[in-house]
Design a protein around this nucleic acid. Sequence first.
DNA 1: CCGGTTTCTTGAATGATTCCAGATTGTGCG
DNA 2: CGCACAATCTGGAATCATTCAAGAAACCGG
Lengths: 144, 144
Amino acid sequence: MEFEGLLRGAALRVTRPRLAVLAAVHAHPHADTDAILRLARAELGEVSHQAVYDVLRALTDAGLLRRLQPMGSVARYEPQTHDNHHHVVCRTCGSIADVECAVGVAPCLTASDDAGFTIGEAEVIYWGTCPDCQQGHSVRQERD
Amino acid sequence: MEFEGLLRGAALRVTRPRLAVLAAVHAHPHADTDAILRLARAELGEVSHQAVYDVLRALTDAGLLRRLQPMGSVARYEPQTHDNHHHVVCRTCGSIADVECAVGVAPCLTASDDAGFTIGEAEVIYWGTCPDCQQGHSVRQERD
DNA sequence: CCGGTTTCTTGAATGATTCCAGATTGTGCG
DNA sequence: CGCACAATCTGGAATCATTCAAGAAACCGG
């Protein structure tokens, strides 16, 4: 189980809820909190929502996960990868997909006038309509 | 009052709460819902929060306002301008500032592989630290 | 000035997230 | 291997932004 090594590397204790959450996020990138909770329960039998919230924050702080929160949506999480990819979000059903940045180095990720801010990271979200919703399947469904 | 014309142009009725909200957002770009509510009340004396929420949605749908919602923050609004600018958000105090896109036409706002999505709009958020917070003034304050 | 419809008010409900106190569990050390 | 401390988990209640619902009031066109 590679996840144990990840946790230890981040100076975090290795607990069953943490392994389950980590596995859930890796198995279902872009899953929302509720989905992660259900996945963790499916694996462990019973986990408190509090533990999941706590774990998600701990892992996010430790840099093992990345938190996405498009407007109007609940928080979603994905494994932290440093491949500089962005996200497309469907305005109709809220599904999320990855998109690679058009070029290797991000061209417009360096602001011309930073207003005195120290910029650490840039986040790009494309808003659009997913293939399913384009065909009138406007049933709100979860996919990953 | 130019705002009245804006409302009429969008086929919206001209009501006092709407004018107040519109004025508040123009006077304080990036204001959050609570701030807008307080500003509107300062101008009108008494407005229900429901009216403000309703007005904000109506104006956003009509394209007069733009809604921003960085992760973890409450909704914020700014006047809709079509100048293709983006935002820097302070990780410490949550303040927001505008940044112009480095070049006139957005270079990386066209995804290379759109996963079948029809992309309508791209949103860029720079995460960083504002000048105040860089100096240790980590008091959470609202600015615009 | 009137009718019809939209919009506002009041008050309660929802749903995600967080706080709290106490029981449990992992980890490092002897 | 077993102990003790500290971090973590459990269960439940609380918080906060946002939304829903029903009736009253205001706006627009004629």
